[in-house]
């Protein structure tokens, strides 16, 4: 059989970084779909309150 020319050599265990990245991007794209609802739901109010309080404190303290 004809060997494909000049493909990067791989260690027997694991993929080349480029190969691994392509495969991980495919999984990452599906993970983003899976977690879509998390991104689209409102951020818990107390998270925002923590930041607002800190901003008020630092501007009030000046």
């Amino acid at each position: 059989m004809i060997d494909q020319a000049e493909r990067p050599k791989k260690s027997p265990k694991g993929a080349s970084p480029e190969d691994a990245r392509l495969r991980q991007q495919a999984i990452g794209a599906k993970l983003r779909q899976m977690f879509d609802e998390v991104v689209n739901e409102p951020v818990p109010g107390d998270f925002l309150a923590i930041l607002k309080r800190a901003d008020e404190k630092s501007s009030g303290g000046r």
Partner: peptide, 18 residues
């Protein structure tokens, strides 16, 4: 302020943390 800088990133931060 912190709110302005960080609030836009919190939905993604929560996704990542989960």
């Amino acid at each position: 302020g912190l709110f302005e800088r960080l609030a836009p990133h919190l939905p993604y931060m929560r996704r990542y943390a989960r």
